[in-house]
């Protein structure tokens, strides 16, 4: 069994009346690239800030490299690299001076790591240019350089590709994959760009309204996103009953807006149609489709809303 790098149990963060993170359970194992998927304000950044020690949980437990007490967590955080929200540095210092400041503070021996980190993100030739004159893309690169400077075992990246140009995104992706492959660096990454996330992640957690709705491996997700028959009916509860009792299948999902996704009988749509009609279910439409990460996420949060409304 792989070593668990990060484990959260019932992790909760409340700001006044707002529940930013609601009993989040998550487990990240060594070598995984864990994608956090969620809308703006879903709780992704709150979770990353709790892990990185910028914020304290209201309730729940956080374990990092097996440590869970505040002092031990702080100690283990030196094995991580983090880039949370917009990278922040001293505006009156250059890229090299900013990294040198953190190198001294973190006690990393030798100045070579500064040059190496700047080389990795293509900022080695910024010279005397102050951080305040950097473009957003350059700021992102410097944020990444800082996160990588101490050769972390666990990288926490919050929306890291914001502001990067297409070439930068490709380089960034290759860099992360290389770190993961060559150094076994575990990565927790949140991004709105789901297509980009899908090229990296080996595991996903879907977050909505502070709750981790689902945590799933990329392989399992691919299986879930497989081809299906999407049916629009007048009564989904009745249709579900018919599918179970008459066709003997439970391999379907009930979605909002009177939709159902059936993963079997893909080559027999007429059989399904006839069965539903014969049992008094009004069939409005039926179409064959396959979904991607984006569709899956939308169906998940849509389904969650529906479930919430119906009181399941």
């Amino acid at each position: 069994m792989s070593e668990v790098i990060l484990h959260t149990q019932g992790l909760t963060r409340r700001y006044g009346r707002t529940l930013a993170l609601d009993h989040a359970d998550l487990s990240v194992e060594r070598g995984q690239i864990f994608g956090l998927v969620g809308r703006n304000g879903a709780g992704k950044t709150t979770l990353i800030r709790l892990i990185s020690g910028q914020s304290h949980p209201t309730a729940g437990e956080l374990t990092l490299f097996g440590a869970s007490t505040p002092a031990a967590l702080d100690r283990e955080r030196s094995r991580t690299g983090a880039m949370v929200e917009i990278p922040s540095f001293y505006p009156y210092l250059t890229a090299r001076q900013n990294l040198e400041y953190y190198r001294i503070q973190r006690g990393i021996p030798g100045k070579a790591c500064v040059d190496e980190a700047l080389e990795q993100v293509r900022l080695a030739d910024t010279g005397k240019k102050k951080f305040k004159t950097f473009s957003l893309g350059m700021k992102q690169r410097l944020g990444l350089a800082l996160a990588l400077m101490n050769h972390p075992e666990f990288l926490l990246l919050d929306e890291p590709i914001n502001g990067l140009d297409p070439e930068g995104i490709v380089e960034f992706r290759e860099l992360l994959l290389r770190l993961n492959r060559e150094r076994q660096t575990t990565i927790l990454i949140s991004s709105h760009i789901l297509s980009e996330l899908s090229t990296l992640a080996t595991h996903y957690a879907f977050i909505e309204k502070g709750r981790v709705l689902e945590s799933v491996s990329a392989d399992h997700l691919r299986e879930k996103c497989r081809e299906c028959l999407e049916l629009t009916v007048d009564d989904t509860a009745k249709a579900a009953r018919v599918l179970e009792e008459q066709l003997g299948t439970r391999d379907f999902e009930v979605l909002p807006h009177n939709k159902l996704r059936l993963y079997t009988f893909l080559d027999q749509p007429q059989t399904v149609n006839r069965c539903l009609l014969e049992n008094g279910v009004g069939l409005i439409s039926a179409q064959q489709r396959d979904s991607n990460l984006e569709d899956y996420f939308l169906s998940l949060i849509g389904g969650h809303h529906a479930a919430g409304k119906e009181g399941f």
């Binding site: 990185s52 020690g53 002092a71 702080d74 991580t80 983090a82 973190r106």
Partner: peptide, 14 residues
């Protein structure tokens, strides 16, 4: 204003 304290906290500097 510069938000630089987060770089220290996230490295586990107490």
């Amino acid at each position: 204003k510069y938000n630089t304290l987060k770089n220290e906290a996230s490295f586990g500097i107490g």
